[in-house]
Design a protein around this nucleic acid. Structure first.
Length: 632
RNA sequence: GCGCCUCUAGCUCAAUGGCAGAGCAACGGACUCUUAAUCCGCAGGUUCGGGGUUCAAGUCCCCGGAGGCGCACCA
């Protein structure tokens, strides 16, 4: 392939000429095994591209920047790869004085290279989309009939003895993850969502054997043939016929280690998922978790509902919202920060037990425990109070642990974590006293609380009352230390604008947070049902907002009016599903349990648009919310 | 926002301040039972970007970028 080639620009040209064209035409033969996919299997087999000389390639009439860059560079005939350039300079040490140490690259040359660099993957793909449509992908069938999954094959034919042939034919499909061609034999590992099975190809048995040996790591194939166990003892499909279902035109990572760079893992999650079984395990577990959660709630008589995601007034939590614009009504709307108020309106409307599992959006930063969009369960039950919610949470979470993990004795991040009920129930005040040794409560004089809070490094704002100060103290000293599950109940009323006042203490609210592994998992309360009281609390919040608390709530008059129609005594809770999934799958970072976690957009390298602007880089990482403040 | 760390071939990683390398992938070839097959061969680099020190910078210094971890923030 290198004959008659100019030496420069190799790598680029390699990208451009990467396409593989069929090397043989159609063939006929009997392949009844393929059933519905029969015609597909007769398709042109894959083969390696015969590389045309650059000149041939250039006459296809298509001009793109990369190709043009190559041609320009080629035309110059003087391009020297950087390392050679440097070597030459070093050789010329003697006459150094006469020559500049390093010739600065010409500006346009640099720009061209930058464009070419940025366009690499795109260039590869573009180069392979031939005008005549004879690329390999155009020969790929529209469907393929599988008769078994990889793991089914392995399970069903596990009884075969080494060297034994079953006489049964199967048709399997998946991605080729390893290929071991060996002369007139070839082995490949075919992986599908169920697992992996070995493909065994033989010259003379397998149709288009040569093409099979040239399959590339990551290519999808469908194959049919008899199930056998090889002499070395592996259950395999001895391929009679096969068809390419998709080719992996872009590199697929290291065949053994896959992709480990964290950024690449999440920017190209599909590759991560294919190459890292653990990544798949975590997402599959999450899926199971949500499924079982739904089933349990349905079984308990809860009705699953969906409430708006676009809110005219963001409500139900302390958080900054995302804003968007609704053109038809020419008004700004907000992505919900909580579904709480709508769900309680459904209780007013007669749904006595409702829940919603869905996405919330909070306009805050990224962190190992915070993603701007995250998933919660929110649930409301008429005639129940927060004690009922504690029982429900305990039963739900431990039940799910048994469903999913088969045990309530977990290990989280190398540390034992026992979820076996009953869980401890303690008031927030008790826990703070226990942890700090201070004799503290919501009734402690404000100045004393403020001093203690400052001692803990809290920056105390003048507008904070004793309730807020107590909560700060708790979060600073206690919350992160709680490992085994505990219901932290009786929060200050001041910081719980949607919770009902405590039946025994007017300074407190009937609210609890369920904390495990140092993190809030659930936030719940006996719901505030009095419309006048709710209005007053909203107005208090609005006041705090005017004082600069951007996360304080707004007055939601629709909600107050709904309460005016009568909300029965109601218990409600919010549970962070991402965090529960983290706990169950034993991962430390929230993005592991999210299929496509939020990432800063990838910046194109090179090109005019990428001049590093000051503003775009200013957006630092702030705080965030991912399950904290699940409700209020 | 602060501190520490990282950025080198498609992927995973090397390189006392002295000619940028390996394994895998890719590409050409050999091989009838492989298991990350093996063997032979050939290619592949903006060492994140910019500036500086130096005879000489992947390496040292400065500025910037991206990423990770921790802290802070996040009632």
């Amino acid at each position: 392939m290198r004959r008659g080639r100019p030496r420069h620009g190799h790598h680029l040209r390699r990208h451009l000429e990467h396409g593989r064209v069929p090397r043989r035409g159609h063939r006929s033969g009997s392949r009844d095994q393929l059933g519905g996919a029969l015609p597909a299997c007769r398709r042109t087999p894959p083969g390696r591209a015969r590389r045309a000389p650059l000149g041939d390639r250039a006459v296809d009439g298509r001009i793109d920047p990369v190709r043009r860059a190559v041609r320009i560079r080629g035309a110059g005939g003087r391009h020297v790869p950087p390392h050679r350039r440097r070597a030459r300079r070093r050789d010329g040490r003697r006459d150094r004085g006469a020559q500049p140490a390093r010739r600065p690259p010409r500006r346009d040359d640099r720009a061209r290279r930058a464009v070419a660099h940025a366009a690499r993957p795109a260039a590869r793909l573009r180069a392979q989309r031939r005008p005549g449509g004879e690329g390999r992908m155009t020969t790929v069938p529209y469907r393929f009939d599988q008769t078994a999954t990889a793991s089914e094959v392995v399970a069903r034919f596990g009884g075969l003895a080494p060297g034994e042939e079953s006489g049964d034919e199967v048709s399997v499909a998946g991605r080729v993850m390893l290929s071991r061609p060996q002369g007139k034999l070839a082995f490949a590992e075919l992986r599908d969502s169920s697992g992996a099975v070995q493909l065994f190809a033989l010259d003379g048995v397998t149709r288009d054997f040569q093409a099979f040996t040239r399959l590339r790591l990551g290519d999808w194939v469908g194959a049919c043939g008899e199930v056998v166990r090889t002499r070395r003892g592996e259950v395999s499909v001895k391929i009679a016929d096969w068809v390419l279902l998709a080719e992996a035109r872009l590199p697929f990572g290291d065949k053994w280690r896959g992709v480990t760079d964290v950024e690449t893992r999440f920017r190209q999650r599909e590759v991560d998922l294919w190459t890292s079984p653990d990544a798949r395990r975590v997402l599959a577990l999450r899926s199971q978790l949500v499924r079982r959660m739904r089933e349990r709630l349905w079984d308990m008589g809860f009705v699953e509902v969906e409430t708006p995601i676009l809110h005219p007034i963001p409500g139900g939590a302390h958080a900054r919202p995302f804003v968007t614009h609704f053109r038809a009504l020419d008004m700004d709307v907000y992505l919900r920060i909580a579904p709480e108020l709508y769900l309680k309106r459904l209780v007013v409307g007669g749904f006595e037990k409702v829940f919603e599992i869905g996405r919330l959006f909070r306009n805050e930063g990224l962190s190992p425990r915070h993603n701007p969009e995250f998933t919660t369960l929110e649930l409301y039950q008429a005639y129940a109070d927060y004690h009922d919610m504690m029982s429900l949470v305990e039963e739900l979470v431990t039940g799910l642990a048994r469903d999913i993990l088969g045990t309530t004795s977990l290990t989280y991040q190398g540390r034992p974590l026992d979820l076996t009920p009953p869980w401890r129930r303690a008031t927030l005040t008790e826990l703070v006293c226990e942890k700090t040794g201070l004799d503290v409560s919501v009734h402690t004089p404000r100045e004393t609380l403020a001093r203690w809070a400052r001692d803990q490094g809290v920056e105390v704002a003048p507008s904070w009352g004793p309730g807020k100060l107590l909560l700060e103290l708790y979060e600073k000293t206690t919350e992160g230390e709680l490992w085994e599950p505990v219901f932290v109940h009786d929060y200050p009323k001041e910081v719980s604008p949607l919770a009902r006042v405590h039946r025994d203490d007017p300074m407190l609210a009937e609210r609890f947070e369920q904390v495990v592994a140092g993190r809030e998992l659930v936030n719940a309360f006996s719901e505030l049902v009095d419309p006048a009281e709710q209005l007053a609390r909203f107005e208090e919040q609005a006041g705090a907002r005017e004082q600069g608390d951007e996360e304080a709530m707004l007055v939601d008059t629709d909600y107050v009016r709904a309460l005016g129609h009568g909300l029965p005594p109601t218990g409600g809770l919010g549970l962070g599903i991402d965090r529960l999934a983290m706990l169950f799958s034993d991962v430390a970072h929230i993005r592991e349990v999210i299929s496509f976690p939020m990432m800063r957009p990838e910046r194109a390298e090179g090109g005019e648009g990428s001049a590093a602007g000051g503003e775009e880089r200013a957006a630092g990482r702030g705080g965030g919310s991912g399950g904290d403040e699940l409700r209020a």
